[in-house]
Every structure is written in C-alpha cells, then in structure tokens.
Design a protein around this nucleic acid. Sequence first.
DNA 1: GAGATTTTTGGCAGCGCTACCATTTTAGTT
DNA 2: AACTAAAATGGTAGCGCTGCCAAAAATCTC
Lengths: 334, 334
Amino acid sequence: MVIDFKQRTTVTLAEVAAAAGVGESTVSRVLRNHGSFSPKARERVLDAVERLGYVPNRIAGTLASAGSRLVAFVIPSLTNIVFPDVLRGAGGVLEENHYQAVFSVTDYDSEREETLVSAMLAWRPTAVMLAGFEHTEGTLKILRASGCRVVELLDTDGTAADLAVGFSNRQAGRASAEFLLRRGYRRLGYVGHDLDLDTRAGKRFTGFCEALNLAGSRLAGREIRAGASSVESGRAGLKQLLERAPGLDAVYFSNDDMALGGYFHCLSNGIAVPADLALFGHNGLDIGQAIPQPLASIRTPRVATGKLAAELVINEAPPQVADLGFELIEGATA
Amino acid sequence: MVIDFKQRTTVTLAEVAAAAGVGESTVSRVLRNHGSFSPKARERVLDAVERLGYVPNRIAGTLASAGSRLVAFVIPSLTNIVFPDVLRGAGGVLEENHYQAVFSVTDYDSEREETLVSAMLAWRPTAVMLAGFEHTEGTLKILRASGCRVVELLDTDGTAADLAVGFSNRQAGRASAEFLLRRGYRRLGYVGHDLDLDTRAGKRFTGFCEALNLAGSRLAGREIRAGASSVESGRAGLKQLLERAPGLDAVYFSNDDMALGGYFHCLSNGIAVPADLALFGHNGLDIGQAIPQPLASIRTPRVATGKLAAELVINEAPPQVADLGFELIEGATA
DNA sequence: GAGATTTTTGGCAGCGCTACCATTTTAGTT
DNA sequence: AACTAAAATGGTAGCGCTGCCAAAAATCTC
C-alpha cells in the first residue's frame, strides 16, 4: 500500500475564484449562499469547486468573521450514559445548523473542569455546555470574561450563570420518596455513589430525605460508595446495606445503574422484589425497563435537554432556566 | 440577574505585548514555551497575561501555523457504549497533548458519514477517526485528497486506508463458536441486529458461521432484527427465535446488549441458563459481568483502541494496522 | 578590549477567509 | 432613449496569530 505523503497544497478559495473566472467575494457568497450572485456565476463556481475538490477552510472563515459555530461540551463522564445521551440530543440540532461539537471529560473533577473550560475557550466557541451548577469560582470567572454563552445542563436547583436546561433533581428525589411512602414502604434505605462529586445525585438524595422528614419519617440506613456509579457498585452497596441495616423494605438508589446492581443482588440471593424489598432507581434507562421486572424509576429528559440546550444557543435565547420535568415510572420493583 | 451583553473586546496577543512592554513575538514564544526568551521577559509576559485575563485564540494560531491539533471522530452511535468508550480512551491522550476532540454521529449511515467527514475536514483536523473499513468511495476520496491522517477503529478485517486500530471481529466470531462447540453445544442459534449497517457485527457473524462449518456443523436458527442493538431487541429476538427454532442449546448474540436481553428473557420464562440454553455475547461489558450469572462474552479493547489511535496520530506513526486482540470471558452462561 | 558567537528581541508578511465598499452591469420607468 | 433603482461583482483591509529574518543585546574568546 502506498501512501502519498507529499505536501498536498490545499486548494484555496482564491484558486477556485481563478478557476471559475470570478472574484473571491463571489465564490464566498455562492458557497455561503449569502448576498447576491447570478445563476451563471453560481454554476461556474460550483463547477470549479467540484473540479478542484475544494473544501472550505472554516478555521480561516471563523477568524475572518465572528462566530466559530463550535459548541464546547465539558462533561463529567462518558461512561455514565446520561452524558452521551445529552450529546446525542444536542448533536442532531447542532449538525443541522452547521455547528460542530467539541468535547472534553472532567471525570467529575471541578479543577479539571476549570482547566478544560479554559482550554476550550481558546477555540472561541459559541457556547460552553457544562453539567450542573457547581463550578469553581475560577471557572465562572473565565466563562464570564469570555462573553460566550454558557449552558448548565441537567439541573435547575441553583443559580444559573446564563442558560440552564434540565430538571429539578431535588424534586425528583422528593417524588421518589413520596412514591415509596404512598406505596406503604416505611423502612427506607439508600445506596449511592460519591455525592460530593456527583452533586446532582446529592440533590436527589437531599430531596429524598426532605420528603421523608416531611412525612415524619427518616432514612433507616444508607450506604455511600466511593467512586462513580456502576452496576457492580450498586450490587455491592446493597449487599453491604442489608447486612448493616436488616429489615429494610425499600431502597432508593442514586441512579438506575446502581439500582440494577441492587436488583441483580436480589435475584442472586433469593430476595423477592418487591415483596421482600422494593427498589427504586433514577433515569429511566431502557435497560431498566427490559429486566424481568421493569425498574421503578424516574425518566429524565436527557436527549431533550441536549436538544433544547442547542436550540437555545443557536436561537440566541435570553438567559433563562428551562425545566423539562421528569416522569415517574411505576415499574414493578416497587 | 444582569447579563453583560456589551461586546467585550477580547484581549489579543498584541495587547498583552503592549502591556508587558515586549514584542508580539516574545509573547508568542513565552506562551508556547518555544524559541528563546529571557526569564525577565517571561515573567513580564505571564504577569500581563494574568492581569488582562488573556486567552490565546487557537483559531488564529492554527491558521497562522500548520496543525490544527483537532482530531475528528465520526462515529456511528453514542448509544452503543462501545463508541463513548473509544472516545474516552482517546480523550485522555489527546488532552495531555493539547489536542481537542471534535465529533459527529452517523447513525450507521454511510452517506451521512460522507457528509460529516466532509464537514469535519473544513476544520482541517490532524486526523479523522472512523469506525471500521466500510466507507463510501466518496468518503475515501475526500479523505485521501485532504492529506490528513485517517484512523479506522475497532476492525482489522479489511484494507486500511492509513492507520487502523482494533481487533479482528471475524476471529472474535470464530472464537465464540469454537468455545461453544468445545463446551459441547451443538444446536446453535444467532440473534443479531442489522448486519448491513453494523458491518463489524456482520464480520463476527461470518466468523462464527465459518467456525461452525469447519466443525462440520451449521447454524440451527437465526433471528436478525432491524435497527440498532438494544437490550429490548435482544429479548424480543430470542423470544422469536425460540418460537421458530425450538431445541436450540446455545445462542450467540451480536453483542452484550442483545445477550442481556436474551438473558432476561430466560429469567422471565424459567429457561435455565446454561442448562436449557447457553448464551454468548460480545464486548464484555461490565454490566454483563454483574448479572447473577456472569455473561460468557468476548472482552474487546475499546478504551485501549481509542488510546492507541490517539497515540499513533500524535506520534505521526507510519501507516499500519494495530491488532489489540480480545479476550474470551468464560462467564457462567455457557 | 576588540572581535566572534550566541542569545534575545521586535517587525512584519502572510495563513485563507469574510465584511465592507466602490464599481459595473442589468432591469425597470417614463 | 435617458435616467434611476436594483443586482451582481471584485478589490482589499483586516481577523489574531506564527514563522522568518534581521537587528540588538549579552556572552565568550584570546
């Protein structure tokens, strides 16, 4: 196999103009379909573009004009399917409008977030999309100074810097507790992952406890596991919790991944769900609905969040907080 | 809340130079730590940068120099965790080397792939990363003409355009069949998703059938489902298959998502695994190892693929095919 | 201490494009 | 046909940075 390494002089707009026998401006106008030009000119330009294999250079275009049509995502994780879902929702809209998505991953580390946001801004993106409201002072400062739009995703409990799209995790936590109480469960436990890192999970937990308090009840046991959420962590977490706090009749998990782990623990150990123990997750993942007993959970608007976030940015919407709500899935595990 | 909409004149390198009392070149050299400058100059520049809150403009930098330090990913899906995993692997390496990842999603449509690759090239990326070897002629043509590096991911069965990193899906399929045969299963079925779209799954299936033929055996039944893989699709697929082809003793699934669906079907319907029916997946996802009986599967080097792909590009490696292999997980479902 | 090196520095021409403006061409009006 | 309005076009000055080069300053050599 032979690869051509010789410096292929990239075709420029000027060359296209020359080949088409028109001025550079005309080529630019035709290609962006902006301003006026004759059908004849259009044809000659498109013909030359085709013939020379011209690919516009958006780096140059961006520098010359104002907007970069680049949208930066600085997200905590790619392993937690929540974020790919948001990216997916945004991706479609962005693409239709000829925007490009750029991303980096913080691993739930807000210092890293600051570094990454700062690096992103060097590309002069139209907007920066972040998870939630909890950021370092430094992050907020450089973001403000940049003048670019900021969208905080998947959270509405807090103060938005500019735009925010998501739902109230706190209310989701409350709704989960209320549902379990309504079903008659009284000895409730919690299995979660690191709440300091995943502040949205923390808010759900807060909401959950609030609802319990309001009902004159309280958490009968909790197991907080270090690190990110995972099925295995949920499984081990439930095992731990049940050993330490026997007699629970329902457990709330920080999300569906954790809850699935819990479910599998029950399956393996002959714990009847929900007769012996009820399980409640969060996110409403498809897989949770495909297990033998559909998981009781809360369906969150992840794709819709990405979609709306992109739309707001593209339409230059004024600062606002868009609450997309959530939907309780009764399932069969509670 | 008040948002400052006034056109915040972005700080430029020239302003930093003026503030630091040095020339523009010196600022540029200090910031890139490239070329020579005195400690004194360095200090004054960094001080001015800090004071003015200067953020370099990489759009301009890229235009002026050669390389964009942008790596484009054009992937089939974000729902299939395989691709986020690859992105994750690449992301770390890219970030360390001050590269940025840009992506778009084809939804397994090669016409869209061509459009998206073309759009990506407008950003003059250092490399374009694609899934597999199957691309339209048009895609290959514009890629060749662009002169940028191309990495084809997660496949080694075919002809690479430039770099390729992954493993042999065909061999994975063979290994899966050989394992099942070795275990004594004889009436083998297959449940898969759309093979024309996911050509790598198709190659696994081919390899699987080859191994059966070699052993003088043949597939006893198959169910190919339209659309992308999912747990629900696997569940429904296995149900269908068992109705149509009773008496199977093992089923090979196009991937772990599908296999999990199959497992859940068995759980729901009192089919003992593996006594009544053995199940075999592909990818070795964590969740497959967290269900009551760890799923027999093949662990694929997804993160490592992303990592190596990024490294090869950054180190300007010569064209090559890197086979990272795979690992059979015996599990407990076969 | 003069001359030869080496290090540090600033000026400036692009990179490829778009925005703006001035000019030319075409269409419209009476 | 003469004149006006509208449409089409090309020239060119940047966008903010880097790379090159020549000049200036610092260091070394005998």
